Computed example of a mutant assay.
Amino acid sequence: MGDSKDEREQFEEELIGLDPHDPETKAFAEHLDRMKRERPGYTVEGYLEGVQDFADSANRTTGHQRLAAVLVVGLILLGVILTIWFALSDILTIIF
């Protein structure tokens, strides 16, 4: 699903008067593209693209926002590790 002509024209209309070679303009156009992108959230690919967007935005941030993103990822990983630990302990209890 490439960019259709209508989408490119819409971006051009929103960026009228801005220098197309300016890095800030390019970043703003990428931001608009991410905001308007629609993908199914009920598929594995949709979930993974959402995680990729989160990781990309976390890598671009600094300071408190980056700390909050690292904290969220850490809590998620802690939950996964604890779930695996408890599941393995239950399995080993049942077997032995």
Rank of each mutant, 00 (worst) to 15 (best):
M1D: 06
G2H: 08
S4Y: 04
D6F: 09
D6M: 11
D6S: 12
E7A: 13
E7G: 00
E9I: 13
E13A: 14
E14F: 07
E14M: 15
E14H: 05
I16T: 10
I16S: 06
I16K: 14
L18H: 04
D19S: 10
D19N: 14
P20N: 07
H21M: 12
D22K: 05
D22Y: 00
E24N: 11
T25E: 08
A29Y: 05
E30Y: 00
L32T: 05
D33M: 10
D33S: 09
R34H: 08
R34K: 11
M35Q: 13
M35S: 07
K36S: 13
E38Q: 07
E38K: 07
E38C: 00
R39Y: 11
P40S: 14
P40C: 09
G41L: 10
G41Y: 03
Y42M: 05
V44P: 01
V44F: 01
V44H: 03
G46Q: 00
Y47E: 15
L48R: 08
E49G: 02
E49T: 02
V51I: 15
Q52F: 07
Q52N: 08
D53P: 01
D53Q: 10
A55M: 15
D56H: 00
D56W: 00
H64T: 10
H64E: 12
H64Y: 05
Q65N: 04
Q65M: 09
Q65A: 12
Q65W: 00
R66L: 09
R66Y: 01
R66C: 03
L67G: 02
L67A: 14
A69S: 15
V70S: 04
L71Q: 11
V72E: 15
V72W: 01
G74N: 07
L78D: 04
G79K: 02
V80F: 07
I81W: 06
I81A: 15
T83G: 11
T83R: 05
I84V: 15
I84Y: 05
I91S: 09
I91F: 12
L92K: 10
T93V: 07
I94W: 09
I95N: 04
I95S: 04
F96D: 12
F96R: 13
